[in-house]
Design a protein around this nucleic acid. Structure first.
Lengths: 214, 214
DNA sequence: GGATAATTTGACCGATTGGTAAACATTACA
DNA sequence: TGTAATGTTTACCAATCGGTCAAATTATCC
C-alpha cells in the first residue's frame, strides 16, 4: 500500500524527485497559459506524459500542484530585486536591474505568466506573500532609492512607482508576447527584439525621452 | 416558438437591449477575473441574476458572449491611441496619452484585465485583430513619433518600444492592482495613488530619472 | 380581450471535472 | 532472492461543465 504523500517523513526517492520535477514542468506549461481555474489535471497529466491518478499520487490536489509551483517561482522571481545593491552607483544598478528583469522575461516567460495570471485573479493564493516578504523587500529597496534621490544622484521621484514601472515594462515582453509579436510584425520578432527593448528601456529610465519643451 | 437569436433580422426589442447589456456586464465581471476557460456560464448567469437557459437565449454559446465582449472592449480600448495627434507637440501629446491610459486603467480595470487574460492565453480569439487593425494603428502612430525624432523634438528611440512602455506602465495599475495595493500598503492605496502614478510616469517619460553619470 | 410572438424556466443530456479505490507492477534492500 | 515499500494503472464516482428541449410565462399588437 502506498503511503499518502503528505504523511511521508522519509527522504525523497530518486523517482519522486524526477517525477515531481516533470509534473511541475508540465503544470507550469498549463497553469501559465490558462490560470488556475482554467487548467485541468488531465491537461497537465497529458503534458507530463503520465496518468492522472499517477500525477495525483505525487500531488494530492490541483491546489497542491499550484502551491508548489508558486512557491518555487516566487523565490527566483525576486532574485533580481534582491541583487539591487545600495552600494553600487544608481546608473549601473538600475541598468543591470532592467537587464536582469528583461532576461528573466525572455528566459522564463512561463513563470512570468503564471504570476500574471495569479495577479489578474486577485492573488487568491499568494496575497500573504505579497503583503509580507514582497512588501518588505520592496520597502528595503525603496529606502535605497530615496537615499540616492536625497543625495542628488537621481531625480526626486516616487520609488514605489519607479519599481512598478521597471516591473511592468520588462514583464510586458513575457506576458504580452503575442501582442508584441503581432505589432512588431514577423520581421522584427526575432530574438533581437530583446536587445532593442533593453536599449530603449535603459535610455528611457536613464535619460527619459529628452523632450524639447516648446 | 422563440426565434433563434442569430436568425433574427428585425430590430432589437427593448428587453433584448436591456438583457444583453446586463449579461455582458456580468460576463465582464467573470471573464476579466478567470479568463475564458476558467469562467463558467453558470457563474455569469448567477451574477446576471437570470437562469442559464435564459442567458443562452441571448448568446447561444459561451464563445459568443466572449466575442461580443471583446469586440465592444477593443474599440474603446484603442481610443486614447487614436487620439494621439501628429499635429500636437510631443510633450503634451505624450503627457495626455499617459493620462488617458491611466484613467482607463482606473475607470475600466475589468476591461484591462479581460484583455490581459486574452494576451496571456496567446490571444486565441483576437490574434487577427492584433495583426490587422491594431498593428495598422500602431504603425501609423509610430511614423508620427519617428517624425518627431527626426525633427529633433524628441530623443531618437524605438517608437514601438516607446508605445509598449506606455501601455505596460499604465495598464499595470489595473492588471496588477492587488500587487500594487499590497506593496503600497493600505495607507497609500487610496485613489490618490493614481495621481502619484501619473506624476511619476509623466516625469519618467519626459525627463527620465536624470541620473548623474559618475 | 385574444392571438401571436418573445421571453423565461425546470428538467435533462452527454462530456468533462477533480478526485478515489483497489488491483497490479516495480523498485529497493535485507 | 524474497519481500515490503513504492510506484502505476484501470475502473469508477459525484459534481459540474456547456448546451438543448419543451413547456410555461409574459409582452405586444390588433
Amino acid at each position: 500500500m502506498a503511503i499518502p504523500r503528505a504523511a511521508r517523513t522519509q527522504r525523497r526517492t530518486r523517482i519522486q524527485e524526477e517525477k515531481e520535477e516533470i509534473i511541475l514542468e508540465a503544470a507550469l506549461d498549463v497553469f501559465s497559459v490558462s490560470g488556475f481555474r482554467g487548467s485541468t489535471i488531465d491537461q497537465i497529466a497529458e503534458v507530463a506524459g503520465m496518468s492522472k491518478p499517477n500525477l495525483l499520487y505525487y500531488f494530492r490536489t490541483k491546489e497542491a500542484m499550484h502551491r508548489a509551483l508558486i512557491d518555487r517561482v516566487l523565490f527566483t522571481w525576486l532574485e533580481p530585486l534582491r541583487a539591487f545593491d545600495a552600494n553600487g552607483n544608481p546608473e549601473s544598478e538600475i541598468r543591470s536591474y532592467i537587464r536582469r528583469k528583461l532576461e528573466m522575461a525572455r528566459d522564463f516567460p512561463r513563470e512570468s505568466r503564471l504570476f500574471a495570471n495569479e495577479m489578474l485573479q486577485g492573488a487568491p493564493h499568494v496575497e500573504d506573500e505579497l503583503r509580507g516578504p514582497l512588501k518588505a523587500l520592496v520597502d528595503e529597496k525603496v529606502e535605497v532609492i530615496r537615499a540616492w534621490a536625497k543625495a542628488g544622484k537621481i531625480a526626486k521621484c516616487d520609488p514605489y512607482h519607479l519599481i512598478f514601472s521597471i516591473w511592468s515594462t520588462t514583464q510586458h515582453y513575457a506576458d504580452f508576447d503575442v501582442q508584441v509579436r503581432a505589432v512588431l510584425g514577423d520581421e522584427h520578432s526575432g530574438e533581437g527584439r530583446f536587445e532593442d527593448a533593453a536599449r530603449y528601456l535603459e535610455q528611457l529610465f536613464v535619460d527619459g525621452l529628452r523632450i524639447r519643451h516648446s
